[in-house]
Structure formats: structure tokens, C-alpha cells
């Protein structure tokens, strides 16, 4: 693959918020994000002291742990012009940080500041860098397949992400986007929801996989690994022949790596 020397760019200095799912399940999604940011002229750094956004604690009602993790994240990403990650849900959580601090807390203002400079990757590329920023790179890519796009809830309703990934995808040669029925309906993942209420979650994801396969798409795309792991896992269990990928894998031209839950791939051996 292409060489990338870190910090070689004069563009904005971006801190990558890896997200715990990309870190643990699909590092290639984070690498694709880095590649796109660098193509957009950013210099990318990965702060060492990041773990998870804290959403499991926030949504379980544990405000103290949420605030502890928020402080850790705010400190880790101090000084970056932008903070960008491959998830509307996790970046959305960063946007909730002001809610967990009392306005008199010194972290409150810093939380507001972090919120103002943190973006989900497709929204960052499209809304901040500009619609045509990656035009040259994207038009060199080929993905000759019908795809369908799942709008993840936080990305869509909290972060306003709908057109951004679609507009970027359309710049890739050969992509045919077929919208599924109820693309904006929750897939049933919901963090701990899917293990706390597995039967309801299962019904929701079963509805989803029906809508997905009804489109006849070759690949399901989305912007959040939580939802994608859920839907890919269900597609596999049902034996449906639809691949699932994070949208950045297409945009970064990294489709040589097997799709989610597909054949064996060992990143450790590539190192």
C-alpha cells in the first residue's frame, strides 16, 4: 500500500478518535479513516490516552464514570484543530459531554469546545473539507456493485448525517446505490440493548436484513460499526449473501480486505 509519512501535510491537524469497536474489531476502518483524512490534506495523529467514548456508562445511567471518561477524552484531544472518528454514535457521545458537567466545572467549557471541533468522518470530509475535496481520488476508484446504505440512528438524528456519505459514494466509479425500505429505522443494536433484550433486538434486525436483501444489493454500507456488526452477524446467520462494510472502506479503496464477518484476515500477520 501507499506510503504515508505522518505529519507531512500543512493542512489541519486532526486527532483521530479511533472508537473502541474499530480498535478491537476492525482496525482497517480506522486505517481507512486516516487515509481519507490524509488525502484531504490533514495531518493525522492518534492520541495515546483514548479508550472508549463512554457511551456504555452514559446510557446505563452511570454519570460519574461518564464524566471520568469524558475528562480523559477531553484531555487526550486537547489542542487538535479537529477530532474525527468513523462513527456518528461515538462522536455523538462526545457531543453529549457538556451535559455531564455542571456549567461551573472547568471541563464544561472544554467539553463545549471539543463538541465544536469533533466530526464524524463523512460529515467532516463533506461539510468541513468540502463536497469535492476528494474528487480526484474518488474518481480513480472502482466498485462495480449495487450497494444499499443503512442510516445509523445517532448519525442521522443527532448529527444530521444523511447525504454526506451518499454524495461521496456517488463519486466512486461503478457504485449503484439502491435505497432500502426503512433505511432510517433502527437495526436493533442499541449498545447493551441487544444483549439486554435479545429477542426484541432480533426482531428488529430481522426486519432490517429483509429490507436489505430485498434491494438485491451486493454490499450493505453504513457509518457505524455497532450497527454493521449487528446486521452483518444476522445476515451471516440467515445465510444471506450480502457483504457488509463501513462506508470509509469503499471511499478509501480498501475493498481488498474481506468484508465484515467474511473470510479469515489477520492484520497481526500483515505487520
Amino acid at each position: 500500500m501507499v506510503n504515508h509519512m505522518p505529519n507531512s501535510s500543512s493542512g489541519p491537524r486532526v486527532g483521530l478518535f479511533v472508537t473502541c469497536l474499530a480498535d478491537m474489531f476492525r482496525p482497517s476502518v480506522a486505517f481507512a479513516t486516516v487515509k481519507l483524512l490524509e488525502q484531504a490534506g490533514c495531518s493525522v495523529e492518534v492520541p495515546e490516552r483514548q479508550t472508549c467514548c463512554g457511551q456504555p456508562a452514559f446510557n446505563s445511567g452511570d454519570r460519574k464514570t461518564t464524566a471520568d471518561i469524558a475528562r480523559q477524552t477531553i484531555d487526550a484531544f486537547d489542542g487538535y484543530e479537529y477530532v474525527v472518528g468513523p462513527s456518528g454514535s461515538c462522536i455523538g457521545m462526545l457531543h453529549y459531554y457538556p451535559e455531564v458537567f455542571d456549567p461551573s466545572d472547568s471541563y464544561y467549557q472544554r467539553a463545549l469546545n471539543l463538541k465544536s471541533r469533533s466530526f464524524e468522518i463523512t460529515s467532516f470530509l463533506f461539510d468541513v473539507i468540502g463536497a469535492n475535496a476528494l474528487q480526484e481520488q474518488l474518481k480513480l476508484l472502482q466498485f462495480n456493485h449495487k450497494v444499499t446504505y443503512h442510516d445509523s440512528c445517532s448519525g442521522l438524528r443527532q448529527m444530521g448525517i444523511k447525504q454526506q456519505p451518499r454524495q461521496l459514494l456517488q463519486q466512486v466509479q461503478g457504485v449503484e446505490l439502491e435505497e432500502m425500505e426503512e433505511a432510517e429505522t433502527c437495526c436493533g443494536f442499541g449498545g447493551t440493548f441487544c444483549v439486554k433484550y435479545p429477542e426484541i433486538s432480533n426482531r428488529m434486525v430481522s426486519n432490517k436484513t429483509d429490507y436489505i436483501s430485498n434491494t438485491g444489493a451486493h454490499t450493505l454500507l453504513g457509518g457505524d460499526l455497532g450497527c454493521l456488526l449487528n446486521m452483518a452477524g444476522k445476515l451471516k446467520r440467515e445465510g444471506k449473501q450480502v457483504e457488509a462494510r463501513h462506508v470509509v472502506e469503499i471511499l478509501a479503496g480498501m475493498t481488498d480486505i474481506p468484508a465484515i464477518g467474511e473470510a479469515d484476515y489477520d492484520l497481526a500477520q500483515q505487520l
Binding site: M24, F25, S28, F31, V46, L229, G233, K234, K236, R237
Partner: peptide, 16 residues
């Protein structure tokens, strides 16, 4: 209810 897609073997932080 569903399969668990396998991770890629190491973390991004390590690979990075």
C-alpha cells in the same frame, strides 16, 4: 440470534 463477526486479530492502536 446472530453470528459475531471476527475481529482482525490485533487492535488499531497496536497496528498504528
Amino acid at each position: 440470534w446472530r453470528d459475531m463477526p471476527a475481529p482482525q486479530g490485533t487492535t488499531f492502536m497496536k497496528a498504528w
